Amino acid sequence: MAEFCTISFPGSDFVPITLECDQNLSEHLTIQNSPVLFGCRTGICGTCLVEVIGNISPPQPEEQEMLETLAANYPHARLACQVNITSNVEIHKI
């Protein structure tokens, strides 16, 4: 039986969405259901930079390099296109 994770967007008008766990955010977030914008969806443009609060895996080295450049002062910064959801999370725009 599949487990489900809830993605919420505090401070926005977007309602929480529920996905099966172990899904990539970029495959499920759209302009209609989230405040997250996407450009390349490969981790090189930085348009999907967000703060993720919740238990997720750490960034891979390539993503970490981008995060150090784009959001050095945000310890929970992630590129949404690189995040696989493994638990309930809150997403805030940076």
Rank of each mutant, 00 (worst) to 15 (best):
Y74C: 13
D13K: 14
A71L: 09
E63W: 04
E20A: 10
E90V: 03
N88L: 00
L29P: 10
F38P: 06
Q23L: 01
T30S: 10
C81Y: 07
V50K: 06
I85K: 00
A72F: 10
A77T: 07
I85V: 15
A72E: 13
T42A: 14
N88S: 03
M66D: 05
H92S: 04
F38L: 07
E27A: 15
H76Q: 11
I56H: 00
I56Y: 00
Q60H: 10
A72C: 12
T69G: 00
I94A: 06
Q60W: 05
S12Q: 05
L25P: 10
G39Y: 04
P75I: 04
Q32N: 12
E27I: 03
I94F: 08
F14D: 06
M1Q: 10
L67A: 09
I31Q: 08
L49P: 07
T42R: 11
M1P: 12
Q32F: 11
A77H: 03
C21D: 01
P59W: 02
N55D: 15
L49F: 08
I7T: 10
L79P: 12
E63C: 07
F9S: 08
T86F: 02
I91H: 01
Q60D: 10
T6K: 12
S87Y: 03
M66H: 11
N55R: 08
I31M: 05
E3K: 14
F14C: 02
